[in-house]
């Protein structure tokens, strides 16, 4: 499979979306709406649930299943209020000492006049800073597209896992190709160069684990993933310097050891 094949697979509308994971892996999900500032952005869904009997906060970028739902959810492109809702729920999780599980799947933050007016850049920036300091365990799982800052705004976590065919990139291959080669049709070449596959992310240390898609969508798949998350949370529970380690995790990207004279 080429890098661009993976991009296409990651975007496929037949893939499970965040709400499938939430429904299948968790019990007693109670959805909580709104950012308490402006409105409820349905591109992001979040709330409370049990994971193997343990209360957690779960947040996911939701693309929707059919056309009508996809439109309602802006095809999974969150507006600033979506990121602010996620932040509100994360702060709430911190208050009640619940871990946060995040499912990331977006082509990118919503691009529009209203989004700019309401501070898309500020909303993402605020999340990056707040997640870095959040005093509860955070695990992010990239289940499809990891589109740049819009994905990172829910992925400044202690662990970042990616599905085998998920992609994570600073720019879409089409966007990159149209800037570099003035031709969006060269996206497959750009996809290769961008090193955006789960294996690339693993090699770069951006992701800690790649999740096999062998039986994606089956009960067994969800159960294994839920158990893996529970196990990881136990490790994170015992970590006393959580935010320090999280800082060091991100601090290590592009560290320059050698001082040249």
């Amino acid at each position: 499979m080429t890098a661009y094949d993976k991009v296409r697979t990651a975007r496929s509308t037949t893939r499970p979306t965040a709400q499938d994971y939430i429904t299948e892996m968790f019990t007693g999900f109670i959805e909580l709406h709104g950012d308490r500032r402006y409105r409820d952005d349905e591109a992001i869904m979040g709330g409370l649930a049990y994971l193997n009997g343990r209360p957690v906060t779960v947040i996911g970028i939701e693309k929707g299943h059919d056309t009508i739902e996809r439109m309602r959810r802006s095809f999974g492109a969150p507006e600033p209020e979506g990121y602010r809702k996620a932040l509100r729920l994360m702060k709430q999780a911190e208050k009640f000492h619940r871990p946060v599980i995040l499912f990331v799947d977006t082509s990118g933050a919503y691009c529009g006049i209203g989004a700019e007016e309401r501070g898309q850049g500020e909303a993402i920036a605020e999340n990056l800073m707040a997640m870095m300091g959040l005093n509860v365990p955070e695990i992010s799982i990239l289940i499809g597209e990891g589109g740049s800052g819009g994905a990172l705004a829910l992925a400044v976590s202690d662990r970042v896992w990616m599905l085998e065919n998920a992609v994570y990139s600073v720019i879409s291959p089409e966007g990159c190709a149209s800037i570099l080669y003035k031709d969006a049709a060269q996206a497959p070449t750009a996809a290769e160069s961008l090193k955006l596959t789960a294996d690339d992310a693993l090699k770069l240390g951006v992701a800690e684990r790649v999740i096999s898609e062998r039986n994606i969508g089956t009960a067994e798949f969800y159960k294994t993933l839920a158990d893996d998350i529970s196990k990881e949370l136990e490790i994170l529970d015992k970590t006393t310097d959580l935010t320090e380690r999280r800082y060091q995790r991100f601090r290590s990207f592009g560290r320059f050891e050698e001082e040249r004279k």
């Binding site: 990056l128 994570y168 600073v170 690339d200 991100f250």
Partner: peptide
């Protein structure tokens, strides 16, 4: 710089 560039957003924010 691909993901290494993206990660700088998180790193500087920290």
């Amino acid at each position: 710089e691909g993901l290494m560039s993206l990660m700088q957003m998180a790193k500087t924010s920290g």
